[in-house]
């Protein structure tokens, strides 16, 4: 158990700046999700935490100890890989025992701890099998068992669920979170999937192009995105962003009123007149694809409405879309940063 602190971390590969100045503090026992698109530097950041890469500039501190130049084995960080990285030439039991063996733990204690870890993950029946023949979900459990068999100061997860089927993934997500709640070990979880980050993280750090754009609780990020990137990245579908009134205006697809063109608009409402391009049935709601303007200047957005409203709409013709001004998110047109009205 320990805190983690990144101080002014840079990682340069020649002229390419994979990580371009990150300051981040993770509290003891916290679950921090690092969220970002591929190539944003999140994996490099994680590899620097684990010690697999050395920062070009900056420091990594685990539990107040500067570990910047320590090799991975001296850091007591457990890492779970996207590929699971199970050793194919060893049985499941030997895979789980490997970190203990590498640290010179005696055989009797090793066996006991492997049995316990296997029990925690519910894979006792698999211990003598070869990892090569396991299913994706089973491999993932073995990888987790190998990570938790020793008592690490820190877990780092590199997209551990991304190679699972959608159904198994949802299950694994809640299991992982429960595991964290039991063990209370500081965790850094790297993902490009906002559902994982929103669902599991105590806090989320959103990264883009080697920098952290915003850090906060899932609710903070969802409720008050710091810039247009964060706004356009969270939520499914994400926040609509359209240029209007000299700013970039953001609004969620939910809570949008739709009425026929020409309907008068109350002063506390923000209104856009746009053409409905398509209606999509999503079960409890309908999704409207709307386009304002034409050609180069065309701006698209999405609205969710109830089935009752849909009956009054017509594909191909203009409608007025209204959002209460209080629910708008305003961003600077140049910098993309959040501004207060």
């Amino acid at each position: 158990m320990a805190t983690l602190e990144l101080r002014g971390i840079h990682k340069h590969y020649g002229a390419a700046h994979a990580v371009d100045g990150i300051d981040l503090t993770v509290a003891d026992g916290e679950f921090l999700a690092i969220l970002g698109p591929s190539g944003c530097g999140k994996s490099t950041t994680m590899r620097m935490i684990a010690g697999l890469e050395t920062p070009t500039i900056g420091q990594v501190l685990i539990g107040d100890q500067d570990v910047t130049h320590l090799p991975p084995r001296a850091r007591n960080v457990s890492m779970v890989f996207q590929s699971y990285a199970l050793y194919p030439n060893m049985s499941v039991a030997k895979n789980i025992a490997f970190p203990l063996k590498a640290r010179g733990v005696p055989k009797a204690e090793r066996d006991a701890r492997v049995a316990k870890a296997a029990q925690t993950m519910g894979i006792t029946a698999l211990l003598e099998r070869s990892p090569v023949r396991l299913s994706g979900g089973e491999k993932q459990k073995v990888a987790l068992a190998r990570a938790l068999v020793r008592d690490p100061a820190l877990y780092v997860f590199d997209e551990p669920l991304s190679s699972l089927d959608a159904q198994v993934r949802a299950m694994a997500r809640s299991e992982l979170r429960q595991l964290h709640d039991r063990t209370k070990v500081t965790t850094v979880y790297v993902t490009h999937d906002q559902l994982e980050a929103l669902g599991m993280g105590d806090r989320i750090a959103v990264m883009k192009a080697g920098r952290v754009r915003q850090v906060g609780t899932p609710k903070e990020l969802y409720g008050a995105p710091a810039d247009t990137f964060v706004a356009g990245f969270l939520g499914s579908p994400p926040m609509n962003l359209i240029a209007a009134e000299g700013k970039i205006i953001g609004f969620r697809p939910e809570g949008i009123g739709v009425s026929r063109a020409g309907t008068p608009v109350a002063s506390d409402q923000f209104a856009v007149t746009a053409r409905i391009v398509e209606l999509e049935f999503l079960g409890s709601t309908w999704q409207i694809y709307a386009v304002q303007g034409a050609g180069e200047a065309a701006q698209k957005f999405i609205a969710h409405v109830s089935p009752q409203v849909v009956t009054t709409l017509e594909v191909g013709s203009d409608h007025v879309f209204t959002v209460p001004r209080a629910e708008l998110h305003l961003f600077d047109a140049k910098t993309g940063l959040r501004v207060t009205a």
Binding site: P72, M79, R103
Partner: peptide, 13 residues
Amino acid sequence: DLEDAAMTDGCSR
């Protein structure tokens, strides 16, 4: 990844 895993598991290069 296998070597990276081994190194975080406590092995030297």
